[in-house]
Amino acid sequence: MSWLSLQRRDTQLSELMDDPACDLDGLRRTYAQFGSVNSLVAGWGRVYRQHLRPRLSRDRPHRLLDIGCGGGDVPRALARWAARDGFTLRITAIDADARAIAYAAAQPPVSGLTFRQALSGDLVRQGHSFDLVTSNHLLHHLTDAELRTVLLDSEALCRDAEGRGGGLAVHSDIQRSPLAYAAFRVGVAPLFRGSFIGVDGLRSIRRSFTAPELAALAPPGWQVQTLPPYRNLLLYDAATALSDTGAPARA
């Protein structure tokens, strides 16, 4: 794989796990290994400490929406960390794929965590709102139009019925680069046999965004931060964004 082939997103590639006809045993093994691979590459412990935990208070329950939850390892980790730190965090984890929800819901229950087959737009139409909105490795699966839709949904879900909001959205994804591709191919993919992670991980990198690409696509009010190694965080602080546009905001 040369740098030239990574200069642009390869949106023609599809991941094995996204195939409705993929091998179900391989898919379940992939879901089962997500927790291990994400602990190596996704950096959610740091994201929780730097971005999510400061928004939590022990004075009241908080609500978090995780979009595209896959096998559910990230919302499970967030639930454990919040409980460990003395917070009440009620998490709704959604995925459009019934296979992902079936797998996640079949795992041992975690207090305050529920799984649901849904799109972010479904929750917008139903009038839901959340203090925190997250996703992990979702953005690279999307077309540019789908990405904008998810971001606008995230904005709406960080507001209440009166248009006010103080919520935070954090979408974490891979940052495309030849070094990321080489590091995953040599250091990570060989560790995960019998699943789709080796193939899909490399395809994910080729489908993923650079930081400037994300910044160019994001609506006003969103910010891109980079997180080592080879991560993009796309952040929306509803209180700041609404204040900047003159709309009422609350902390």
Rank of each mutant, 00 (worst) to 15 (best):
S2Q: 06
L4T: 07
S5Y: 03
Q7P: 03
Q7T: 10
R9W: 02
D10V: 12
Q12C: 03
L13Y: 09
M17V: 05
M17Q: 11
M17N: 09
D18K: 14
D18M: 10
D18Y: 12
P20M: 06
D25L: 12
G26H: 06
L27T: 08
Y31H: 14
F34D: 00
F34L: 15
F34H: 09
N38F: 13
L40T: 11
V41E: 04
G43M: 05
V47N: 00
Y48W: 09
R49K: 13
H51Y: 13
R53V: 13
P54E: 12
I67H: 00
G68P: 06
P75V: 10
L78M: 10
A79R: 00
R84N: 14
D85G: 02
G86H: 12
T88V: 12
L89P: 02
I91N: 01
A93Y: 01
D95Q: 06
A96K: 06
A96D: 04
D97R: 05
R99L: 05
A102W: 02
A102N: 12
A102I: 03
V110A: 07
S111M: 15
Q117W: 02
G121V: 01
V124T: 12
V124Q: 04
S129R: 07
S129C: 14
F130M: 01
D131F: 01
N136F: 02
N136G: 05
N136Y: 01
L138P: 01
L139Y: 00
H140F: 08
H140I: 03
H141Q: 05
T149W: 11
V150Y: 03
V150L: 06
L152F: 06
S154Y: 08
S154M: 11
E155M: 13
L157S: 09
D160G: 11
A161T: 02
E162Y: 15
L168D: 05
A169G: 02
H171L: 14
S172K: 11
R176P: 05
P178Y: 05
P178M: 06
Y181L: 14
A182K: 14
F184P: 08
V188S: 07
A189E: 06
P190L: 08
F192A: 05
F192W: 04
G194F: 08
S195R: 03
I197F: 02
I197V: 08
G198R: 01
V199M: 07
D200Y: 02
R203L: 09
R206M: 08
R207W: 01
F209W: 09
A211F: 01
A211T: 07
L214F: 04
L217E: 13
P219R: 09
P219L: 05
G221W: 00
G221M: 01
P228K: 11
P228L: 09
Y230Q: 12
R231M: 09
N232L: 07
A238S: 12
A241I: 10
A241N: 11
L242T: 02
S243C: 05
A247R: 14
P248E: 10
A251E: 15
